[in-house]
Amino acid sequence: MSSAEDALLLWDLFKQGDWNAYTKLYNQYFKLLNNYGYKFTKDINFIEDAVQDLFVKLWTTRSNLGNPLSVKNYLYKSLRSTLFRKLQSNSRFTEIQDDNSLPFEASFDQAVIATEQEQELRVKIKVVIDKLPARQQEIIYLRFYESFDYEEISDIMNITIASTYKLLYKALHSVESVFKDSNISNSF
């Protein structure tokens, strides 16, 4: 059985009020959700509050929850909207109306040992991606880090599938410039 199917079984038990299943869901997704949250803000308390709110709401509304496409997908989507909502209510007096304005930032591990060429390329990738608008950075993350498919990304980011393709292509267009003058040998 795939882990996605396992997760859906767990989800079903949790919806019936199984505290154990709920605990397992938390333990399985805590780290992933924190990592995702960290892309939007470096304020750890803020992320923790959002994760807490998310899980408290899951439990209190469990009997009204449906069966999501995938559990991971659902949790990402929920965390994302919780973060945006919290951010908006924290700054009710500033004019944040558009959720596109939440920054998104991937950080890179300098400690990973890599060849000089790889290292150089990694820096280039970071420079190029850091310059992308937040939503383009987010779609790159969901696609290449989390390996969500188009349908899942459109669900998480709350846009149509057509827009998802468009957004990814826009982002990839900029990313291509990384290879302007580098030679890379075949990797397969």
């Binding site: 938390y26 333990n27 805590f30 780290k31 992320i47 923790e48 950080s107 790889e118 880090y145 990797s187």
Partner: peptide, 29 residues
């Protein structure tokens, strides 16, 4: 090769797991 390198290079980023706070936050929940 370029596409492969880009994906692998991008995936070499830091992960923030906040693992040390996992148990603590659970107690709050």
């Amino acid at each position: 090769a370029q596409a492969t390198t880009l994906i692998r290079g991008y995936r070499a980023q830091d992960t923030f797991t906040n693992a040390s706070r996992q148990a603590e936050l659970w107690k709050r929940i």
